[in-house]
Simulated assay, not measured.
Amino acid sequence: MKNNIKEYILIIIGSLSIAFSVNCLAIPNLLGEGGVPGLIAMGTYLFDIPSYLTNFFLNGLLIIFSYRYFNKTLIFRTVFVVILSTIFLHLTAHLPLRLPYPILAAVLAGAFMGGGLVSFI
Results as ranks from 00 to 15, higher is better:
Met1Leu: 14
Met1Asp: 12
Ile5Gly: 02
Lys6Leu: 12
Ile12Met: 03
Ser15Gly: 15
Leu16Val: 11
Ile18Asp: 00
Phe20Trp: 03
Ile27Tyr: 10
Gly32Trp: 10
Gly32Ile: 13
Gly32Thr: 12
Gly34Ala: 05
Gly35Glu: 04
Gly35Phe: 04
Val36Ala: 06
Ile40Glu: 02
Ile40Asp: 01
Ala41Gln: 05
Met42Lys: 14
Thr44Tyr: 09
Thr44Asp: 07
Tyr45Arg: 03
Tyr45Pro: 13
Leu46Ala: 14
Ile49Ser: 03
Pro50Trp: 02
Pro50Phe: 01
Leu53His: 12
Asn55Asp: 11
Asn55Trp: 04
Phe57Gln: 00
Asn59Val: 02
Ile64Cys: 07
Ser66Trp: 02
Phe70Thr: 04
Asn71Arg: 08
Lys72Asn: 14
Lys72Met: 15
Thr73Ile: 11
Leu74Thr: 09
Arg77Val: 04
Thr78Asn: 06
Val79Trp: 09
Phe80Tyr: 07
Phe80Cys: 07
Val82Pro: 08
Ile87Glu: 12
Leu89Pro: 04
Leu89Ile: 07
Leu89Phe: 10
His90Asp: 11
Ala93Lys: 05
Arg98Leu: 13
Leu99Ala: 08
Pro102Trp: 04
Ile103Met: 10
Ile103Val: 03
Ala106Asn: 00
Val107Ser: 04
Leu108Asp: 06
Gly110Ala: 00
Gly116Tyr: 01
Leu117Pro: 01
Ser119Tyr: 01
Phe120Glu: 04
Phe120Tyr: 13
Ile121Leu: 14
